[in-house]
């Protein structure tokens, strides 16, 4: 399975409102598919983490991946 977590404002802005969920892996599944699946508008997701490293919209996901999606965040 693929673990997906949506942070900060993303669950409030998505169609499903989900914070944390699992996805069935399938060939060619990309981060873009996940974001569209949640009904998030283009540009809402600013940072994509896959297994703790930066990914892109086109990154393909495979079984066991941990995905974290973030809007623009900052602090210090």
């Amino acid at each position: 399975m693929i673990d997906v977590r949506m942070f900060a404002t993303l669950p409030m802005r998505s169609a499903t409102g989900r914070k944390e969920f699992q996805l069935e892996p399938r060939a060619g599944l990309t981060v873009r598919d996940v974001i569209e699946g949640e009904g998030l508008a283009k540009g809402e997701v600013h940072i994509i983490m896959i297994n703790g490293q930066h990914g892109t919209l086109d990154s393909e996901l495979s079984d066991g991946d941990r995905v974290g999606l973030f809007p623009p965040v900052g602090g210090g």
Partner: peptide, 20 residues
């Protein structure tokens, strides 16, 4: 970041991303 991220959630918003 300066109009939404920091304003809505403060600096603690970093907990999840630095953890990830």
């Amino acid at each position: 970041v300066t109009s939404q991220g920091l304003t809505n959630f403060g600096t603690a918003i970093l907990v999840n991303i630095i953890n990830e």
